[in-house]
Design a protein around this nucleic acid. Sequence first.
DNA 1: GTGGTCTAGACCACG
DNA 2: GTGGTCTAGACCACA
Lengths: 130, 130, 130, 130
Amino acid sequence: YGTMVHMTSFRVDPKDPTPLYAQLERAIRTAIAIGRLQPGAQLPTVRQLAVDLHVNANTVARVYAALERTEVVETQRGVGTFVRATPPASVVSENRERDLDRIISRFIPEFAALGFTIDDVITRLQRRTK
Amino acid sequence: YGTMVHMTSFRVDPKDPTPLYAQLERAIRTAIAIGRLQPGAQLPTVRQLAVDLHVNANTVARVYAALERTEVVETQRGVGTFVRATPPASVVSENRERDLDRIISRFIPEFAALGFTIDDVITRLQRRTK
Amino acid sequence: YGTMVHMTSFRVDPKDPTPLYAQLERAIRTAIAIGRLQPGAQLPTVRQLAVDLHVNANTVARVYAALERTEVVETQRGVGTFVRATPPASVVSENRERDLDRIISRFIPEFAALGFTIDDVITRLQRRTK
Amino acid sequence: YGTMVHMTSFRVDPKDPTPLYAQLERAIRTAIAIGRLQPGAQLPTVRQLAVDLHVNANTVARVYAALERTEVVETQRGVGTFVRATPPASVVSENRERDLDRIISRFIPEFAALGFTIDDVITRLQRRTK
DNA sequence: GTGGTCTAGACCACG
DNA sequence: GTGGTCTAGACCACA
């Protein structure tokens, strides 16, 4: 009733020094990799996502173009942008180790800022593996 | 024997779209947070660090200035830059536990997206405490 | 026996950044120029070609209209679209030889850039005359 | 002695339906491949090339970014853009056959428009191999 | 002065 | 209505 809202809920943080387009690209790749976006699924339209994220449409288009170039998504002219059938893990990232390091480098200062030590976090993580 | 080498081993990655200054600031805050840089410890000189990181000295200087402004480090003119004594008590949240869980929950999908398990992450974190 | 299949085998490449309409127009002009489409020959119907090329019928129609405007083809309402009799004599240049050399000189570096020899190109061109 | 003019002389044709950025990217890749731009050579600055080509600086920047992503050139922050040391033929184009076809598809209608046949051109090309 | 990011807004190609 | 291209112009990061 009224407009259907695509609850894909990507988020970008303008305060983060990481460029918006890089944040969004990472978010979409993650969504695909963890299966929240299934193969064949349509991504939000460029303009819609731009509105949702309070970001310029060009910024979104740039991300879609980058994903298309790396064959993570497929664009049908005049129709829309869709998740590709085959998103082999290797395509999602060519350098897992480096990427893991980067994520951890963003992770540590966030909890450290709250006064938690690495050991605190390890304890917490171990609880999640049980 | 000539030059003191500060083996702090910060790293910045010019391929990362995150600005160099943001990467460096994050790295230093992390080093302090995890105790690799103890209160009172001296940071490398601006020039030395610039050479080590293959980065312009202005960039390093700007980071040091930012850290000084937020009272994370202290500069003694003509002497050097040092880690401050007290991690700010002001940061203490009433819901630290909940906040930590949120941070962890935000990062787990990113790790999982690359195919890493929680145990992989724990291993990696433990390596950073050394 | 039912549908006539026009084996004209035009091709458009959706990955090519060149617009589809431009690709198709060029392909048809080429087919005429090299004699694969003789004067008087009927072009495929708009809809048929659209299906063959996996392209929207509007796109094909727009190309046919453009070709008609430049008097390369002729549409007989309710009958079909046909190649015109005369390649326009108006095109004849006084310096055709020099012009041809210029065109060739412009393209050779492009071939060479990909590591192809002139002989490779000749072979390729000969294949197109068949 | 006035300003040194970098005679790199790339050209783009706004009348060509091929997007400007695609024309420019092709031109630069060609220049590198045929050795007109040697490894280590600096590309014109974004703004300079934009002026030379009567094109917006963003368009040039987009091309440089694309070349950087495919590791054909290397950008040094704040310094400039340079041809990479190793431009293996495979990097220049992953699909030589397809690219050759595209070039030939642009080549044929140009000389056909002047009334030359493929055989005319072949004869001409053979003369160049001697 | 170098390249990079982002915005606003126009216009095009395609379905 | 979909994505793509291009422009003009602001501001940032870096040397």
